[in-house]
């Protein structure tokens, strides 16, 4: 089978395999872990558009996830809205957040944009604690219902898995369409050189704003899914650490790629659940891994930046380019 056929068949095989995971896994918690992988992957797809394609850094993406999670929780629990409506509201609120954050990005670049998004993330995590009437403060927001669309309730571990990975699939399709067409070229041009892109007639303002909004939207929807899957959210989920984890997944995954970051999101999420994943693993080993989790992420970033600045995706490309040459 040559590379071209493989490439054509790959999405079909990928979807088929993703679909049968719940049939092969009987352990409900393990399935939940794979569901968490999907939720993180959804955030990372958005971040890959923003950072990997358009070159705009965001150290505050957990805030968008939090906005979405709290919005959907508030709408379904306090306002009694159907889940789907709450899910849409979560996307809208997060997208509005993205619009607000897009404004400084029009003037700021590099480190300064990183600082602005970092500040946004910190502000929002404080807001989640202080807005007690809405968020429940430090104690968190509990009793969030399972996702449901009309009469269909996603209650079982496998249905939640399919729901989340279905959302990831749709996000990947959307993102793939964006990146392979004109907006994607504009984003890459922006990544390469902002002045150059402007000189070529790229509407920089439009590209930046739209990318921020789409990226925030995906994070917000991921937050709403998390709230539904777990049934409980608290401010400690949407902190700077989470934002840095997402950016780590994106960097490790690589620029100008969607698959690389998704792969990295899955791999780095699994690090956290090593004890649930590998049955024979001694508890102490798992705890050691967990307590060094941030260090592992940090180390991964450093290694990638030094040895493979374009991430896993870059490594893959280099390898396949080598194969085709020979």
């Amino acid at each position: 089978m040559n590379a071209r056929t493989l490439r054509a068949l790959a999405p079909l095989i990928a979807v088929a395999l993703a679909l049968i995971v719940p049939l092969a896994v009987s352990d409900r918690f393990l399935l939940k872990v794979f569901t968490f992988c999907g939720i993180n992957a959804l955030v990372v797809v958005g971040l890959a558009l923003l950072f990997g394609y358009a070159g705009q850094v965001s150290l505050g993406h957990a805030a968008f996830m939090g906005l979405g999670a709290y919005t959907s929780a508030y709408c379904t629990v306090e306002l009694g809205w159907p889940w789907l409506l709450g899910f849409v509201a979560a996307g809208v609120v997060a997208a509005l957040g993205g619009l607000i954050l897009a404004i400084p990005s029009l003037r700021l670049k590099g480190y300064y944009l990183a600082m602005a998004t970092l500040g946004f993330g910190l502000l929002m995590s404080l807001a989640f604690i202080q807005a007690e009437p809405i968020t429940g403060g430090v104690d968190g927001f509990s009793g969030i219902p399972f996702p449901s669309i009309g009469p269909v309730e996603f209650r079982s571990a496998s249905s939640l898995y399919w729901l989340v990975w279905g959302a990831v699939g749709i996000a990947v399709l959307v993102a793939h369409n964006i990146t392979s067409l004109r907006p994607g070229r504009a984003m890459r041009a922006l990544h390469g050189s902002e002045l150059g892109a402007q000189a070529c007639g790229v509407d920089i303002v439009g590209v930046k704003v739209r990318t921020f909004v789409v990226s925030a939207l995906m994070a917000g929807l991921a937050g709403a899914l998390y709230a539904g899957v777990v049934g409980f959210i608290s401010p400690s989920l949407f902190t700077l650490t989470a934002s840095i984890t997402f950016i780590a997944m994106t960097i490790v995954g690589g620029t100008s790629s969607l698959a690389g970051p998704i792969l990295a999101a899955v791999a780095l999420t699994l690090v956290q659940y090593s004890d649930a994943l590998i049955p024979g693993l001694p508890r102490e080993t798992a705890q050691t891994i967990q307590s060094y989790q941030e260090d592992i992420y940090g180390l991964a970033i450093v290694l990638i930046v030094i040895f493979a600045p374009r991430g896993l995706a870059g490594l893959w490309k280099r390898r396949s380019a080598g194969n085709e040459a020979s």
């Binding site: 493989l6 490439r7 054509a8 790959a10 999405p11 095989i13 990928a14 395999l17 990947v172 793939h176 100008s256 790629s257 969607l258 698959a259 690389g260 998704i262 792969l263 899955v266 896993l312 995706a313 893959w316 490309k317 396949s320």
Partner: peptide, 10 residues
Amino acid sequence: FGWPSAVLLV
């Protein structure tokens, strides 16, 4: 870089 092949890998 065909994204499908990497998704497959994941």
